[in-house]
Amino acid sequence: MLGILSAVGVLIVVILLLIAISGFIRYIPNNRVGVIEKLVSGRGSVKSGFIALHGEAGFQPNVLRGGWHLFAPFQYRIHSVPLVTIPQGKIGYVFARDGLPLESTQSLASNITASDFQDVNNFLANGGQKGPQRLILREGTYAINLAQFVVITEDTIYYLPLDRGEDAVFKRMADLIRERGGFQPVVIKGADDLVGVVTVHDGPSLPQGEIIAPTVGDTAGETATYHNNFQDPERFLRAGGMRGRQLQVLVEGTYYINRLFATVEMIPKTTIEVGNVGVVVSYTGDVGADLSGEEYKHGEMVMQGNRGVWNAPLLPGKYA
């Protein structure tokens, strides 16, 4: 009898070991997701790209949510990774490993048609691009496939390690964002008397001879192009925005801006004291006609908004 019990015990242990080794049953906690790696497939390996969209061997687009899951034995490897959490008032940045390559004028990947980082199938089917994304993540918890996407937050870099060299790349990206204060929104308080000068790092370059990009997409009623103070890069570029220092500045408020897309430099407002006027010399705008008249011998004056010395001075007050 004792021998039978021992044999049964050994059999149970062997069965449990086989189940564990085969990956037949897998439990995913509710605070994590499972990234599926298919080891064997009758459809072969991925022919192009990185994610297996058609059942090939390789990383699969869908993730497993919390609970028990059954698989064909020895066919899958499941990588348990945490849910991505962006704290209140913080910003998360996304890097895509697979997708279409960036175009020559792009520094960041477009999210016009591919903006759902929780649906890899949708992202890739709709032309999602690889590399750092224009779209940022706001506060919340996300179930993201960390084989396809890397999410960089202030405290954590969320990703499934695939190569030792990747760690250094993502840390450098995080350091750059941190140097630019990119994990927090831009906050300008009224008492500070500051304005934010914006420099855009994506999109077409300025024409030859221009040093300041003109204001575009600042009309709230035009929803297709209103970028809400550089918080929507796609609408900014659709409106004809260009890279470089911008004529439009930021005034008091809170702005969730992708600092890989645009950086912000704080400068004091221009103050004209009582009893004085301000003479404006503009380095941007159209070349205007000289309004100074024949009797004025000290240079040329142009209409407000043109390039040159404006004929209308600034009266006492504060100007952004």
Rank of each mutant, 00 (worst) to 15 (best):
I267N: 12
Q208A: 07
H298V: 06
V274F: 12
A239T: 12
T284N: 03
G285F: 06
W310C: 04
T223D: 10
G275I: 00
E265M: 03
L237R: 11
F236R: 05
H227G: 05
N276S: 08
Q208P: 02
E273F: 06
P214L: 07
M266F: 11
T199M: 05
Q231P: 09
E210M: 02
M266H: 13
G240R: 10
V279L: 13
V302P: 13
A224F: 03
E252N: 09
V198C: 06
Q231E: 15
G285C: 07
W310Q: 05
Y296S: 04
I272E: 07
L291W: 09
T284P: 10
K269L: 14
V309N: 12
V216A: 09
N311V: 03
I212W: 12
A220I: 12
R307D: 05
D290Q: 13
H201F: 05
V280R: 07
G293Q: 06
R259V: 06
A224R: 01
G240M: 11
G305E: 14
A224D: 15
I272G: 14
G221E: 15
K269G: 11
V216D: 03
T271D: 03
E295F: 06
G308C: 07
V251S: 00
S205D: 13
N306S: 06
Q246K: 13
A239N: 14
G285M: 15
F236G: 08
N311I: 09
T223G: 04
K269D: 10
G253W: 13
L247Q: 07
V251I: 03
Y283G: 10
V309R: 14
R245Y: 01
D232S: 00
V274M: 11
E295K: 01
F261C: 05
V280N: 06
G217A: 03
G308L: 11
V200A: 08
Q208F: 01
P214H: 07
Y255M: 02
Y256V: 08
N229C: 01
L314Y: 08
K269S: 13
V200H: 08
V281H: 04
N258Y: 02
N306E: 07
P313E: 15
V281T: 00
E222R: 13
P214M: 00
T219A: 11
P204M: 03
R259W: 04
A224Y: 05
T271K: 14
V200T: 02
V287E: 12
M301Y: 09
G305M: 06
I257P: 02
P268N: 08
G209Y: 08
T215A: 12
V309I: 13
I211R: 14
M242S: 10
L237Y: 02
G253L: 05
I212G: 09
V280W: 02
F236N: 05
V216T: 15
F230T: 03
G253T: 10
L291R: 11
V309W: 03
T270I: 14
G288K: 11
E273W: 03
W310M: 09
N229R: 01
I212V: 11
K297E: 15
L247H: 10
R259I: 04
V277C: 01
T284K: 05
M301F: 11
